[in-house]
Amino acid sequence: MTFSSLTEFLSKARAALANGPIAIILMEDSIEVDSTLRHHLDAGFRQVVAIGVPDIVLAPDIAPRVTRVHHDALSDTILDDAVNGVIAAAPGQWVHYAYNAEYLFFPFCETRTVGEMLAFSTEERRDSLLTYVVDLYAGDLTAHANAVSMEDAHLDRSGYYALARKDKNNAFAERQLDFYGGLRWRFEEHVPPPRRRIDRVSLFRARSGLRLRTDHTFNLPEYNTYACPWHNSLTAALCSFRTAKALRRNPGSAPHIKTFKWHNSAPFQWHSQQLLDLGLMEPGQWF
């Protein structure tokens, strides 16, 4: 199903959004669009909404399985327009949002579906799941100038840290932290301070009055927490080439980066166990 605009989609797609979980994929360019959509379909999302300009062509085996929405995913208001629009249109449904060349991994995702994970989270009375954005990058930038390669993907195995988050009254926010690391930490001189965090609550349950803000946090504080009050909660990872792409595309940073590899780089194994072993996601009480 294809919609000619985001407005048309939000006005007519309530029936399509009645069955979740829902994945919103914002297609900023055509890089690895097909692999991104295929990954989320295979994860078990019942609805995958692909938002991007009409020039982006989807593979024949994928196009019939997704809802296509023609809209500029590079718009400054994309989070407000698309994600908050879906929140309003699909109350009660679990929603995930990501960009192309970003791949959701959660504990045991090789043998369990995203629906099973979200059912467990619902039983734990959690309405949101923290996801860490784990930067991926090609090991050989000569062979892969845009820093994207599924076969030569690498990640940082260390260098991640968290700082206490303060609220608008300058008090420490309960069970909220600002997380840092990856390429945004190593090349921070090329990344504006508001964009250096790697925490993103990209899995959440839509409800009336909920709003996603431009810094990837929500207007309801409990949605921004990393755990419930009584024990550690499950978290996930969003393995993403997006920062590497931007650093290679940006004329201010590209000339200064000959490689992203360093002594703490490791080949990405495309398996949840590697992320669990590195402490980049947490199974909580889910075994």
Rank of each mutant, 00 (worst) to 15 (best):
M1E: 09
S4Y: 08
T7W: 07
F9M: 00
A13Q: 04
L17N: 01
A18L: 05
A23P: 04
I24G: 02
L26C: 02
E28H: 05
D29H: 11
S30L: 06
I31W: 03
H40K: 04
A43N: 12
G44W: 01
V57I: 15
I62A: 08
A63F: 09
P64A: 10
V66H: 07
T67L: 10
T67I: 13
T67W: 08
T67V: 13
R68N: 05
V69K: 04
A73Y: 03
L74C: 11
D76T: 05
V86M: 03
I87P: 01
A89S: 11
P91F: 03
V95A: 06
V95E: 02
H96F: 12
N100Q: 13
A101L: 11
E102Y: 11
F105T: 05
F108G: 00
T113H: 06
V114I: 15
L118H: 06
A119L: 09
F120V: 00
S121P: 00
S121T: 12
E123Q: 15
R126L: 15
D127C: 03
L130V: 06
L130D: 04
T131A: 10
Y132F: 14
V134T: 03
Y137Q: 07
Y137L: 09
A138L: 11
D140R: 14
A143P: 00
H144Y: 15
A147F: 02
A153C: 09
L155G: 01
L155T: 02
D156Y: 10
S158W: 05
G159V: 10
R165S: 08
K166C: 11
K166F: 15
K168I: 12
N169W: 08
A171I: 00
A173Q: 13
A173S: 14
Q176H: 05
D178H: 14
D178S: 13
F179P: 02
Y180I: 08
R184A: 14
F187L: 15
F187T: 02
F187W: 15
P192Y: 09
P192M: 09
R195N: 12
I198D: 00
D199R: 07
R205K: 11
R205N: 02
R205Y: 00
F218I: 08
F218P: 04
F218W: 12
P221Y: 08
Y223I: 04
T225N: 07
T225W: 10
P229F: 07
P229C: 07
N232W: 11
S233W: 09
S240C: 12
S240Y: 09
F241E: 01
L247G: 02
P255S: 09
H256P: 00
H256S: 12
K258E: 14
N264M: 13
N264H: 14
F268M: 05
Q269I: 02
W270C: 03
H271P: 01
S272G: 07
Q273A: 13
L275K: 00
L276H: 04
L278A: 06
G279H: 04
L280H: 00
M281F: 10
E282G: 00
